[in-house]
Design a protein around this nucleic acid. Structure first.
Lengths: 260, 260
DNA sequence: CGGTTGTTTGAATCCGTTCAATACCTGTGG
DNA sequence: CCACAGGTATTGAACGGATTCAAACAACCG
């Protein structure tokens, strides 16, 4: 379950027919390492190259066979943990954060169902950030060494992984541009529109959604204080661009928001 | 000629004995597509996995055989160009920049000899930024489709490319942290120390070096105005941390600089 | 239901920007 | 070789957007 998110053209799969609600996934099986199958996963179209044969899918199933549940607030992995696997979010959402030696924290991204986690661990052989669940979530565990072996056999899969990593580079470039050049107002607008687009791509409403993160986490992602985030929400409300009460967001005027 | 830069542990090769000055490289051969060899490249230790056999190196030479000269200020590739190759900088240096639709520009990175360019193009099949030479430079041209084929054959090479891409993700994470949480003073200090480290790793002085970019480009990379960059240089000068006159930088007190 | 955590809003402050003036290089042509 | 031009760098003063501090309020959870 892998996805090339930031990078639209790579995201060539049609949206999934239905997204299985988290509680419907093997709810009565114990927490970790439950059986799963790519070949029957409802999210496959979101995160696998479309041109795989049934045999290739079976080969994938032989490697990606376990999942893990992570409760809200729990850590999936921590900076410094030995890198062995990457993760695909099957349900729920996460934040990734890095910490400077002086204790300063920064949120490097929010990931939702269908997106990947842990790609930054390949480089040093250990995780480079903390991944924390924003709500009760389920991830597929993909042992990286075995994924590499598969990529040597299957050209489409190989290319897909390169695309995923490249997409992450592109996503971060955009975020750097946001942090480096935009006003607080523009950052918050961009953030909301980006979330909206990602929800839409997964078959959810682009106009109304629920934020799983706090104002503080948003601020930490956008390089501003939580009070400023709050003020911007209020401002957008006054200008009839967004309807924000608490964590429920309704985008009233997406076009206007884009032109902020 | 490929390197995993941001990510120290992957950077396991010893530093190259000597770095060939740019003018010594085939200076009398016409500008583009000159013969080159990884197997004899003085920078190989910096950018290739160390465990390659002579046969594997020969295989590489069959794919990475052309170089290109880019004069100062010239464009190596532009946003939207069809992606076919990645590039390894053999001599010189570059900046990469992205542009927002409203015309706002942001420098996403500076790359020096031994570092890679173009990894962000894999995702969409076209370049995602402009790469512009900061001085007269030479790059190795690495056709990506053929590199992928090699990676399916050679496990160390495959892993090395994954590491390179992962390193770029990690580098950008650090830059996001810088842009999101640091004061102007800290950003400039971090920038100088990072450059210093990279020069050192290539066998140049860590204490004294020449900036190839303007204050404006530095500012655009660090998310501040050129005047602020200049003020910070002056400040460090007053505090006897750095000696900056024009583009020549001498780091006087690296430890002090790190604690800013 | 009470306590905790998260959110909103206001007022004062501060860091970095903006605007402006001056000085400094670097390369080019007379 | 020198003078000159254009880009580059430095520095000051005023301004403004975001932060800080503070207080009140809302939402959530055990």
């Amino acid at each position: 379950m892998l996805i090339a998110e930031a990078c639209e053209p790579a995201f060539r799969a049609p949206r999934p027919a239905t997204v299985t609600p988290i509680h419907a996934i093997q709810a009565d099986v114990p927490a970790a390492h439950r059986r799963s199958r790519c070949s029957t996963c409802s999210m496959r179209a979101v995160c696998m190259p479309p041109e795989l044969t049934p045999e290739q899918l079976a080969r994938l199933d032989s490697v990606i066979f376990s999942t893990r549940s992570v409760k809200r607030g729990e850590v999936l992995y921590r900076t410094g943990d030995t890198f062995q696997s990457i993760y695909a979010i099957r349900a729920g959402s996460f934040k990734t954060m890095v910490m400077h030696r002086d204790g300063r924290e920064h949120v490097t991204g929010f990931q939702i169902a269908g997106e990947a986690l842990g790609l930054d661990g390949v480089c040093a052989g250990k995780q480079n950030c903390d991944a924390i669940a924003l709500e009760d979530s389920v991830v597929c565990i993909i042992p990286f060494a075995q994924l590499e072996a598969i990529c040597r056999e299957m050209k489409p899969m190989q290319h897909h992984i390169y695309q995923m990593m490249s997409s992450e580079i592109v996503r971060e470039s955009s975020q750097m541009m946001l942090l480096g050049t935009m006003s607080a107002e523009q950052r918050v607008a961009t953030f909301l529109l980006n979330l909206s687009k990602r929800f839409k791509a997964r078959g959810f409403s682009a106009a109304e959604f629920h934020l799983r993160m706090t104002r503080e986490e948003i601020g930490c992602f956008l390089g501003m204080k939580l009070e400023t985030v709050s003020r911007m929400f209020s401002k957008f409300q006054r200008e009839h661009l967004v309807n924000a009460n608490g964590k429920t967001i309704r985008i009233v005027d997406a076009h206007g928001l884009a032109q902020v």
